[in-house]
Every structure is written in C-alpha cells, then in structure tokens.
Design a binder for these strands. Structure first.
Lengths: 138, 138
DNA sequence: CTTGACCTTCCAGCGACTGGAAGCTGCACA
DNA sequence: TGTGCAGCTTCCAGTCGCTGGAAGGTCAAG
C-alpha cells in the first residue's frame, strides 16, 4: 500500500519509457495530475504514477489521441465503468484508422501508377508532372 | 502569350480551388512567388499563376509535403529537367506512404483484436484496459 | 452616405511533442 | 571547500499545413 513518491522525473522516465520532457508536457496538458513536489520543487513520482505513464505510452503507441487517452484513463481508474464505453472509444478509433488507411492507400496507388509510367531517365518527359500540371482535365 | 495579371486573390481562389487564405500562406511559406500588386496593394494573379496553384493543390491532394512540392514546381518549370529526379521524389513519397500505412494497419489490427475480445456491455471487465494497464508484461 | 463584400496585415491555435536558453540543486571528487 | 557536471526547474520557439480571428483599408451598389 505504499503510495510513497520516491522517484525523480528522470527515474520515472527511465521506468516508464516516457521522456521526462514528455511527462512534463502531459502534466501541462492535463493528461496526468500535477506531480507532488519535494522541498527543492522537484517532481516526485510513485510506482502507481509510473504505471499511469506506461498506460499513456501504450495508448499513444496505439495511436489514440491524448483527448481519448484522458477518457481511457478515467475509465481505467473507474472500477464501476461499463466496458461498452471503452469499446466505443476503440471502435471510433478503428474507424478513424480505416479512413486514414484508405486515404493513404488511394494516394499510394495513384502515385504508383504515375511513377510506373515515368521513365525515370535523363529526359524531361514525365507523366507525373503532366498529371500535376494538367490544365483541369478532370 | 498574355502574362496579364487580371485576377484578384478571391478570383484566383475560385478558379484554382485553393482558398485565398491558403494562397497567402503559400506565398508566405515561399512555395509560390510573391504576387504582383495593383495600386491598392491587392494581389493580382495571371492564369499561369492559377495554373501553378492547381499544381500545388493536386500535389497536396497526393500527400506531397510542401517542401517536395517546391521541388516539384522547380522541376515542372525546368524544361531541361531529368524525369529521374521527379521519379525519385515520387518513389520516396511512396516509401513514406508504405511505412505509414503499415504502421496504421498494425495498430488497427492490434486494437481490433482487443476490441473483439471486449464484451462492450455494462460491466467493467475490459481486455483493452487490461492491455493498456498491464504492469509491463512483455 | 452607408452598407457589405472584398482585400490587407499580424497573431494565435490545432496535435503532440521536441529543442534550446537560463538558472537552480545535488552529488562526487580533489 | 571548491568545482564541475548531471539533473532539475521554467518559459519560449519550432515543427507541419493550414485556419480562424482581429483590426483596418478599398470598392461598388443602393
């Protein structure tokens, strides 16, 4: 039950994998609570807070925006949450990802087609530039 | 051969599809040249400049960063360019896109797996939060 | 003569950091 | 005791590609 705050920000960074600067940023951004301070005004962290930092880090690695992560943390800490709410956030994020992937794939395919048709030699003729400069042929 | 600068920024915006604000931004960012001004200091655009704006717009729609677009515009205007240089830019961009798409797809798959295992009901048990909060099981 | 649409400039914010500057603090070593 | 350096503090600025707002000048119509 030790809620002791024994770690410096650098130690919390090392243990959590979140850079010290980013920890300060998350505090400033309101994602995590203001850290406790020791007499010299240095931030102090408990293992529980390191745990929270790891949570944030994993959620970021899954591409969740910080706003969603704040919500996820709230749900995480709320033992009376409904898993429905968590799933809703996840599915929303998946939908976002699908949209982005589809956009990028479409772009990729367009450029790839153009690039295939470009000789890529020392002469100027180039279907890529032709397409970009096309006088509104649609 | 008319290099007449007869259009206001609003008209150039309407003809090119690039918002007036964005045209000013492109000028400020050095993507396009400083526009000519009429007596009242309003910007004036020729059809050729509208053409350039469309070029930028199409390149943006293909996800090229503005830096690359500046280069592409240079190549576009240089009739002695080598198509090799254009293709190189395009292939570099494709590589970028592929990396991004792979990242997003991997994330998507991870979240989807987690979400499938989440009941999404009114009870708190949730594999998504379990995974995010896992105490460094690796 | 006033209204309203257009144009001008500059400043700020988005998201999620990251880097730098300037200044304290703490600890090891001579 | 000094000295050096790592680590901590704060705040400001930059990234990328816009977009919004404020405060003001200009112009044509009613």
């Amino acid at each position: 039950m030790s809620a002791d705050a024994e770690l410096s920000i650098g130690e919390a960074a090392a243990r959590s994998g979140v850079p010290a600067r980013t920890i300060r940023f998350y505090e400033q951004a309101g994602i995590i609570k203001r850290a406790a301070r020791s007499l010299n005004r240095y931030r102090r962290y408990s293992e529980a807070e390191v745990q929270t930092l790891r949570f944030v880090q994993r959620a970021r690695a899954l591409g969740f925006p910080l706003k969603d992560i704040a919500d996820l943390l709230g749900l995480y800490r709320n033992t009376r949450r409904a898993s429905r709410d968590v799933k809703k956030l996840a599915l929303g994020h998946i939908a976002q990802l699908d949209r982005k992937i589809a956009d990028l794939a479409s772009i990729r395919s367009t450029i790839a087609t153009l690039a295939e048709r470009c000789h890529g030699n020392d002469r100027p003729a180039c279907p890529i530039l032709d397409e970009l400069g096309a006088p509104s042929h649609h």
